[in-house]
């Protein structure tokens, strides 16, 4: 079970650039490790991260197996009006994890 953790301000002033920090518990199984019986452990990673603000894609990241387990992603956002920040982590196989919160712009 992947668990997202997000740190983003609840309020911002117009024109301000805010920092969004995210962490999600995930093994990022690279597909290059072997188990005790010598069998390759199949790849299972978070392969994509998307950030939408007020419905528009504002930042995305494609992740390869070279990203460490429990992926940490930090990015910036300049919200010009209040809106909903929606974050989505997409795993190999299509499973999705999400987090959303409102940012009020004063």
């Amino acid at each position: 079970m992947a668990r997202p953790r997000v740190k983003a301000p609840k309020t911002a002033t117009a024109g301000e650039v805010i920092v969004v920090k995210t962490l999600i518990s995930h093994p990022m199984e690279s597909g290059q490790r072997k188990d005790d019986a010598g069998q390759i452990i199949p790849r299972k990673i978070i392969r994509r991260f998307e950030a939408r603000y007020a419905g528009t894609l504002v930042f995305a990241m494609d992740l390869a197996p070279a990203i460490s387990a429990n992926p940490f992603i930090e990015f910036n956002l300049k919200p010009d009006a209040s809106g909903e920040l929606e974050l989505t982590w997409i795993e190999d196989g299509g499973e999705q994890y999400s987090h959303s919160q409102t940012i009020t712009v004063k």
Binding site: I18, Y53, T56, S68, P71, E74, N76, L77
Partner: peptide, 10 residues
């Protein structure tokens, strides 16, 4: 909308 083109990861 990124404002600043910076990203951090591990």
């Amino acid at each position: 909308a990124s404002g600043v083109a910076q990203a951090d990861t591990r």
